[in-house]
Design a protein around this nucleic acid. Structure first.
Lengths: 138, 138
DNA sequence: CAGGATCCGCTCTGATACTG
DNA sequence: CAGTATCAGAGCGGATCCTG
């Protein structure tokens, strides 16, 4: 199967998606593009259960508001679970679901790929800077 | 290699990324999360070269402004090429680069995976709706 | 034809202060 | 401890009008 055939086959899959399934696809992609979602997923993947404050320590730079929001979104989409313990002081633990682990596993190869292509990316960027001064015209 | 080992190994890779490489990773993820980028990449993957107006037709619902912006971003990151022909009327053709095709190929398995998990996603969502009324507490 | 320029509402994000 | 509430700024995204 050539690349082109793979691409066309995959387009066929996408075209066949129901509106609901397409929404799921967008949700997943939304998490991938999100600044924090993937970092949180990875932290939970590596560490297992984590409390709110541990997460905020480990995901460097995240604000409390965005951590709360990201966790809610991840929970809504079934990628993590949230367990609240009625104690004083309060305790809440977050953990990846099977779905969340699955997504993480799916994504990991991409990072290796990006690393492999990093020279190409850098070159593309510098070429673009060149073109900004002298556009390519035929 | 267990899932956990894979995850930890990948974290090691990410930790080893230089600031520059980490920026590239974020750029790539940004494209994945973008509403239009992936659609454009897929259209170009399936159709090969496409003109601006053909793209706007095929990527349903995109505005002229966002198409322009998305194409610029994709070009800057080396995923597509832009070729302008000095004619009257003007003509511009967009096409995937090798890098762009590579990214598309990397992403495609994810869509199959999402489809496979779609029942799990739906169930997670409905469980979350339940919890909104009656939070799970221990 | 392929966009650039402008206006405008909306969401995302951070900072700060407060609460059960 | 684990959030909620509020304010403010930046950027997204669409609609419209204009140009080489």
């Amino acid at each position: 199967m050539t690349d082109t055939e793979i691409i066309k086959a995959s387009q066929a899959i996408c075209d066949a998606l129901s509106a609901e399934e397409d929404g799921l696809k967008r949700d997943v992609l939304g998490h991938l593009g999100n600044t924090w979602s993937l970092l949180i997923i990875q932290m939970l993947g590596v560490n297992g259960k984590l409390r709110f404050s541990r997460l905020q320590e480990q995901v460097k730079g995240i604000s409390q508001k965005m951590l709360t929001k990201s966790l809610r979104d991840l929970e809504r989409d079934g990628l993590i679970t949230r367990t609240m313990f009625l104690e004083v002081p309060p305790r809440v633990e977050y953990e990846l679901t099977e779905l969340g682990r699955g997504l993480l596993i799916q994504i990991l190869p991409l990072w290796t790929w990006v690393l492999d292509q990093s020279d190409d990316f850098k070159m593309a960027r510098s070429v673009f800077d060149e073109k900004a001064k002298k556009p390519i015209v035929i």
